[in-house]
């Protein structure tokens, strides 16, 4: 097995691990506000999130920034809750609103990247090049993320197209569930 494969697998397993569901719930909350015909927006949002977490994953793993694990672990559910509240409240409308959503997804991505990096950094020694582990771990995360989006879109298809659920209801259902999960994470009861 190559170094690339090992860390690719770790990245993929980490984001798709049901025990580490905070990232999964965030991605679902991010997708929930968009009906199926706005898949381009979902793609852009997920890309913005990816850019965000790639930046901090790289900066933190290269030890250019240091944020305490406890703070990051608290902020991650805050990003989920904020996303859910905005799905329901919809403070941003129109073209500017869309740009704001992408900006926020990028900003929230920065926080999730810190979460990924705290683990990776603890395990990588100082002595060797960490470029390959960092890159392959990140690609693994992306593949896992795409899988989550695909599965969620499948579920959305069943409800929205096959069962004819209005999108607003679907959004409220998913966002409400995700907000509940994030509240439990915040209260430390999970």
């Amino acid at each position: 097995m190559s170094e690339f494969q090992v860390y690719l697998q770790l990245g993929f397993d980490h984001i798709s691990d049901l025990n580490a569901y905070d990232h999964i719930v965030f991605i679902i909350a991010l997708c929930a506000a968009y009906p199926l015909n706005r898949w381009r927006s979902v793609l852009l949002l997920v890309t913005a999130f990816t850019i965000g977490h790639s930046i901090t994953l790289a900066l933190a793993t290269l030890r250019l920034i240091l944020v305490p694990t406890d703070l990051v672990e608290t902020l991650i559910p805050v990003t989920i809750l904020a996303t859910c509240l905005m799905n329901v409240w919809r403070p941003f409308e129109g073209k500017i609103g869309r740009k704001t959503s992408y900006g926020l997804a990028l900003f929230f991505g920065l926080i999730h990247g810190l979460g990924f990096s705290n683990y990776l950094r603890a395990l990588l020694g100082m002595e060797e090049s960490i470029v390959v582990p960092l890159l392959s771990f990140n690609i693994g995360l992306e593949l896992g993320q795409l899988m989550i989006v695909a599965i969620f879109t499948g579920a959305a298809f069943v409800f929205l197209r096959l069962l004819g659920t209005p999108h607003r209801q679907w959004n409220l259902f998913v966002s409400g569930a995700a907000a509940g999960v994030s509240a439990m994470l915040l209260l430390g009861t999970s």
Binding site: V78, N118, Y119, G188, S190
Partner: peptide, 19 residues
């Protein structure tokens, strides 16, 4: 929201790896 939270939720990390 931040100060209202239980300080640092006692949530163990969920990344089970040794190198």
């Amino acid at each position: 929201i931040e100060p209202l939270l239980v300080p640092a939720p006692a949530r163990a990390h969920v990344f089970y790896v040794s190198v």
